[in-house]
Nucleic acid binder design. Sequence first.
DNA 1: TTGTATGCGTTATCAA
DNA 2: TTGATAACGCATACAA
Lengths: 325, 325
Amino acid sequence: MVSIKDIAKEAGVSISTVSYALNGNPKVTAETSSRILAIAKELNYVPNAAARNLKKRETKLIGAFLTDYFGAFYGDLLQGMKEVLNKNGYDLIVCSGTPSHRLLPEKMIDGAIVLDSHFQNEELLKYAERGHKLVVLDRELHHPNISQVLLDNKAGATLAIEYLIENGHRKIYVVKGPKDSFDANQRLQAVIQTIERNEPIEFIEIQGSFIKSSGEKAAEQIINEYKEPVAVFCLNDEMAIGIYNAVAKTDLRIGEHIHLIGFDNIELTQYTQPTLATIDYSKHKWGAAASDQLLKLIAGSKVEPERIYVKLVPGESVQMRQTLR
Amino acid sequence: MVSIKDIAKEAGVSISTVSYALNGNPKVTAETSSRILAIAKELNYVPNAAARNLKKRETKLIGAFLTDYFGAFYGDLLQGMKEVLNKNGYDLIVCSGTPSHRLLPEKMIDGAIVLDSHFQNEELLKYAERGHKLVVLDRELHHPNISQVLLDNKAGATLAIEYLIENGHRKIYVVKGPKDSFDANQRLQAVIQTIERNEPIEFIEIQGSFIKSSGEKAAEQIINEYKEPVAVFCLNDEMAIGIYNAVAKTDLRIGEHIHLIGFDNIELTQYTQPTLATIDYSKHKWGAAASDQLLKLIAGSKVEPERIYVKLVPGESVQMRQTLR
DNA sequence: TTGTATGCGTTATCAA
DNA sequence: TTGATAACGCATACAA
């Protein structure tokens, strides 16, 4: 592998002169510099990252830690992160799974954006305590080295429930998310509050886990108990898709017997029949904001936790309740 | 940041002893070793990757280079890669975009798996020439440091066309992929061969680009020219989804007037009405095979290029042609 | 303007 | 069994 030493030898100068020339330091003559640059190009010189990282104590790499690689969900989010990072001379690398956590303490990355429920709070706090910079998207964590960009879950859930109520629904199921999910808990809290403000409403909770199959399971219960048109709020779209699948096998119909709303506005919802009502937010902005916060944290500037706003996307899956039938 | 030097001082031994203990070298007493290990744990010691990488000339990191982060397509593929890599002590990092290419020549990763049409052949060959190990999934490239795991595109395209023909179709549109796409070209070649073997067939090519909107555009032409039931082979599923969208706005119906088959079996196809016929293959196996090849390449073993087999998934989108109507 | 020398944190060779 | 020391490739303070 060709190093600055080789270039120095070839150019008949010292390695420091080469280093200066390569880094555009004005101390070296334009003449010498261009000669060195020419030789570097000719020899296909590429600086060794390990050596540079060791010396400069930074890698210009940011890690995004995800629960898994599935879900079209991540496309916009990661794209948003990447654009902001690239614009600032950083590169994004996407990781998943516990083994990859090592990249942070080993200083292979300058900071991390976390959206991974498998990543424990204690572990994150430990890293923050050692000086690593973090932005979390799926929890609230208070530490000078941690910032967060959170969805406005409560606003979203409130919008969803109010939409159902406005459409005349008075019997509402909520299909919940994993018990340890911050987003799920926030959404549920807002649901309960909104329900209470609008009594009397018949309200039934069903445990779910944010995956499609748990939506199918919830649907079974709803179908079994079916007597009259009901409304269902799935705390994410994926479970709502599960409801579609299960209901399609019965005589009941979404938007007629079962009125359904989800959360996330994933791409898939555009293809369901009838279209799914859901809560939307800009995943691209979310990613961009996360990168922004992290960069500020690394630069040592003061950062204020940010919030990503949401809006209701009406859909054919929710219709006005026919009170007389 | 705590280094082996700090541990050495604390333990009253030399740094080399610490290094040996940390790396489980049996030259050091079990007693000293456990004392050192205890101190290391107490000080929260984590080895610095940059230093280790510099010395060992390897990072135990593999990069996957993708065109973008979109498409549920990648979930299984990356999962397959990761499983094999983790099992062998490597970590996977996922990258996208030109700036991230630097990771390879700068030796921040030990090898790369490429599925990115924006990555030029010349660039890849240049890296291979400098000794970097590569596995490509979207092209054929001959170099001792490059291996490939390719889809059996020709078999898939042949299956698709034969399926249409078996169902009585004699007028067939093909919506093509980007001109520089290896997969698209392979598929098209097989299409033409199969058509020729089954003359007479009316065969019309429409340029596409593997994205949904190009499918919509192709649909416009097909709809405009519509006189009698026709068959359409979209060289990937995403464009087929575009066809669904466009046709939904007309009086024509998929599976009746327009018989449609795609390629890739992406998750979305399970949700279309009627279900889309397509060509399936294991993305998980594809990723696993890619990792496998790369690891072998790094280990210096001989590798044989591999092929991922495909199969037909029948769907309601293709029905027997009603000859009399 | 260029060169010399040092150190970043490891690993590994050679002595002790 | 342990320690002193060189080396990995680069950046930079200081000397010339």
